[in-house]
């Protein structure tokens, strides 16, 4: 699995560049590197459905980020360091890291040996139960279809939220003013 480690190292390097580089457009492109590397990692880990979704989602996310940063403060203005915030960030991040390492030692299964206590039901019964050859689509479209319904609800709510936030304000007020005059 040496290629997995190489890709994970590439993703870590890309995310470090993304959060430290001064140019916002370069940061967005580095996020694109992280996301596309992640989709290749999903392929290596035998999750082709997740890899396809990740490619599409990554492209859309990068397009949205470029749309947000284009023509706006492309080169970040240098406005003083904030050493206290950086130190607190490093302290808290190190705390999270240590706690997670301790938790790994306790309960996590080894890499390459999944627990399969509940989920072995799905591959054993997918063909008889649903007729689907792809177990993942059998789960998301049959066994856990309510999850997919909830996902569609969240997407719709997010679209409504984005439309509400991006709606240009003031038009209705002007009409009201003209009406009152």
């Amino acid at each position: 699995m040496i290629e997995l480690y190489v890709l994970l190292g590439l993703m870590i390097a890309g995310s470090l560049i993304a959060i430290e580089v001064k140019n916002l457009l370069s940061a967005v492109i580095a996020v694109g590197v992280v996301g596309l590397g992640l989709s290749i990692v999903f392929l290596l880990l035998k999750a082709p459905d997740v890899a396809l979704t990740q490619i599409v989602v990554e492209i859309v996310a990068v397009i949205l980020l470029i749309r947000a940063t284009l023509n706006r403060d492309i080169a970040m203005k240098y406005c003083g360091r904030r050493p206290f915030g950086a130190i607190m960030g490093i302290l808290f991040t190190g705390f999270v890291f240590v706690i997670a390492l301790i938790t790994f030692k306790d309960g996590l299964n080894l890499f390459g040996a999944p627990l399969m206590t509940v989920s072995q039901f799905y591959p054993q019964n997918a063909i008889e139960g649903t007729g689907a050859m792809n177990v993942v689509s059998a789960i998301i479209l049959d066994y856990r279809a309510y999850d997919t319904l909830g996902e569609a609800t969240v997407l719709f709510t997010a679209v409504v939220g984005v439309l509400t936030v991006m709606r240009s304000p003031g038009k209705k007020k002007e009409e009201d003013l003209q009406d009152s005059k």
Partner: peptide, 18 residues
Amino acid sequence: VDPLPHALVLTSIVIGLA
């Protein structure tokens, strides 16, 4: 491989985009 986390992560990725 375990198919259940794949199905849940598919949902999670789309919600993350939203």
